[in-house]
Design a protein around this nucleic acid. Sequence first.
DNA 1: ACTAAGTGGATATCAGTTATCCGCTTCTTG
DNA 2: CAAGAAGCGGATAACTGATATCCACTTAGT
Lengths: 218, 218
Amino acid sequence: MATTDRPLRKDAELNRRKILDAAGELFAERGLGVTLNDVAHHAGVGVGTVYRRFPDKAQLIDELFEERLAEIHALIEKAIEDPDPWHGLTRFLESALEIQARDRAVKELLFSTPGGAERVAKMRAQMFPLASVLMARAQESGQLRADAAPQDMPMVQLMIGTIIDLSRDFEPDLWRRLLSIVLQGLRADPGPPEPLEPAPPAPDRMQAMLTAWKPVRG
Amino acid sequence: MATTDRPLRKDAELNRRKILDAAGELFAERGLGVTLNDVAHHAGVGVGTVYRRFPDKAQLIDELFEERLAEIHALIEKAIEDPDPWHGLTRFLESALEIQARDRAVKELLFSTPGGAERVAKMRAQMFPLASVLMARAQESGQLRADAAPQDMPMVQLMIGTIIDLSRDFEPDLWRRLLSIVLQGLRADPGPPEPLEPAPPAPDRMQAMLTAWKPVRG
DNA sequence: ACTAAGTGGATATCAGTTATCCGCTTCTTG
DNA sequence: CAAGAAGCGGATAACTGATATCCACTTAGT
């Protein structure tokens, strides 16, 4: 749709890249809520330039995240091929969540359709059967509890995503601790629990984290 | 501060109650984001009346939730007295989360200070040592894993709170399923897992839930 | 050197929230 | 039962914050 047009002027193409880069950075660190004015400023161009290049925010986002989503898709396919099904499952969750930790916008893209991005919806639909396979394998090998369902996967991602958002600016690895707990709870054969990875933050830091937390939009 | 003034006129006092009731309902079902105009309309009075009675939203909230928070406080004190420490712990989490499920505003109050409500901060500070006792007891009895910390408690509440918010309008009890998983992950002596409580929603209902989800404010 | 393409950023527009104002109504009390 | 204080409703002023446009000016490219 965008690539069939005749080539942009050299400087325009450069600005286009600057915009895309700036948007990527800004979305990653502040979420999809950033305005195109912010993006323009951060890219060192005028607002007009951004709007000339991208009809609206949704378009820009679409273009920007096609690759990022494909990345996650690839992750799950790789996880299915892991010889140890449980290991494949946990590695997938970990790596998907690492992406979420690095990029605020990813969670928002995966778990809501701000502008009605149908592309994302399709992607999710594609991933579901893959997640089913991933989990089925871990169940057959007797490692994942039998009553876990593929539907639990996005829930876990969302729950841990909450911790990621909560602690990002204070204790960026804290989510791993909570993920350990959840994974422990998903085992079919829970032996003595493995030690919880990062120690919890000191009570006063917890306090700080909690008061900085912002609730969801109604 | 408010009670030292001379008594309100009869009709004014009545309206005052109507406003408080309406606010309680509205906050419960839509969160703290509702406007005082909404509250006024829902109470069947004019906006002016609300602003005459309450200088601003924060004041209204403060007044409204003093009791609600005390309720949670009482819950944890009761839990400490439970003869079975693990049962006390799980019952506390369940009942606290039931309140969150019933009332959208509670989570926002507990886990953020929108207007700088110091009262809430104090309350949290009071609860922390109680949570410590609750958990210590369960650890001494060998039921709660030794490396769990009181700091994990609010995290769990937040994580499950996410599921509550996600599923409230579709599958209001779904959070219990995820709580089961987390609790399983917190046991020191995990035998064969207990069956997961509510079944997961059908895939298409999951899809609906996820696309309705709104991300946090940046 | 000429023109089509591109640029910046002030600004119009829109939406949503908070809070005020003031003409009118209702209580209260002497 | 009068009179004035207290209270009421709700239109609307004042903000805030975001999106998107417009147009005088600059630059690339033939």
